Simulated assay, not measured.
Amino acid sequence: MSQDAFRKFINPKKNSVVKEELRQEKKKYKKERAAFFDKIKEEKRLEREAQKGNRTAGKAKKSAPVAQKEPPRTKPTGNSKTSQKAEPISSMPLNKYLAHCGVCSRRDAADLIKEGKVTVNKKPVTEPGYKLQPNDEVFFNNRKLFITKNLVYILLNKPKDYITTTDDPQGRKTVLELIKSATSERVYPIGRLDRNTSGVLLLTNDGDLTQKLSHPSYEVRKIYEVKLDKPLVKADFDKILKGLILEDGVIHVDSLAYADNRDKSVIGIELHSGRNRIVRRIFEHLGYDVKGLDRVMYAGLTKKNVERGKWRFLSEKEIRLLKYLNASKNKPKKA
C-alpha cells in the first residue's frame, strides 16, 4: 500500500526555517489583533459622540420636537464583543435557530428541545421543527438567544487528558480551557476526540458548518497515527483493508500504511466514518492494544506549526474550503 497519503505530513524544511515562519505568523496575528481592537474602540467612540450630539440637539429643540435619526450603526467584524440584535427568524426551525445562536449543533439542539430545556415566549416547546415567528423570543438556560453574527473558527492541537465537551460535571479538564483567551463568543467542538486521543480539533459557533461536517453524507476524511502495543502483521493489515465486521456493522477504511517502515507498530489510517471510537475498535477487534492515537488531519486541515495544547484561527481560504467541502456529494440527483 502506497504511503502517498501520509507524505504530505512530512515537513522537509529545517527547524530554524519553521521557527522563523512561526514567529512571523505570530507577529502578523498580534498586529492584526491590535488593529482590530483599535478599530472597535474608534467605532464605539464615534457612536458615543453621535449619541451625545443627538441628546444635545434634543434639549435645544424641546419647544418643537422632531423625530431624530438613530446614531450610525457600525457593522461588527471578526471577534467583536459588541451587543447584537436578532435577525428575522420567520419560519426558521427551532433547532436551526439554536445552532445559529451558537448554542450547539442542530442535532444536539434537537435533543435539548425534546428534553424541554428550550422555551419560546416563556413556554416549553419540545418539537425541534417548530417554526418560529418574527416576534418569538427564545430562551435557553434562562438566557435570551440572539443569532450569532460574529462567527469564529478555531483549530486546536488537542493534548491528552482533556475531554471534548463544553463542561464536565466531574470537574475534568475540557478543551474550552485551552482556548479561553481566543474569543468571548460561545464556541463548541465539531465532533469528538476521546480523552486519551490527541490532534486536530475544530471549534466554532457556526451551526451550519457543524451540521455539515458532522453529517455522514459529506464523508469528511480523517487521518490518524496509531501506536500499537505490538507490530501489525501483514495478515491483519490485509484484513483491515478488506473490511471488518464489528458489533455495529461493517467498517471500511480509505487507506492504510505503515507510518514507519522500521517500526510496524506505528500505523497511518485514513477513513471517513464518524462512528464512536472506531479507530480503537478496529485494532482491538484484531487483538491489539492502542497505546497512542493522534489525529493528524481533519477535513483537509492539519496541525502543522501548531504546538500541542495551542490553537490558531482558520484563514478565510480554509473557511471557504470547508464550506464547499464535498458539496457535489449532497447535490440532488437528476431524474
Rank of each mutant, 00 (worst) to 15 (best):
V118G: 03
L156R: 15
G129L: 07
S91H: 13
N121C: 04
N142P: 08
Y97K: 06
K149I: 00
D108G: 01
N150H: 10
D111N: 14
R106T: 04
E137Q: 15
S80R: 02
I154L: 07
L132I: 07
P93S: 15
Y97N: 10
F139C: 15
K158S: 07
G129S: 14
A86E: 15
Y130G: 09
I154V: 12
K85M: 11
V118F: 02
R107G: 00
L145S: 03
L112K: 04
D161G: 05
Y153C: 10
N79M: 02
Y153P: 09
K96L: 10
L132K: 14
S105T: 06
K85D: 09
Y130T: 12
C104A: 14
N79S: 09
L132S: 11
S91V: 00
K131F: 02
Y130I: 08
L132D: 06
K149S: 11
V103E: 12
P88S: 15
K123H: 05
K117T: 01
M92H: 10
N142Q: 14
K85W: 07
K96M: 08
N121S: 07
V152M: 05
Q133R: 15
K123E: 08
P134W: 04
K117D: 02
D108T: 04
K131I: 00
E127L: 12
G129R: 14
Q133Y: 00
P88N: 15
D136W: 07
K117E: 01
N95A: 10
D108A: 12
K96P: 00
S105K: 09
L98Q: 03
V138R: 14
L132E: 08
K160S: 11
C101T: 09
K131L: 09
D111H: 10
E115R: 12
P93R: 15
N135G: 04
L155D: 09
V152I: 12
I154R: 05
A99G: 14
Y162S: 10
E137D: 09
R143N: 13
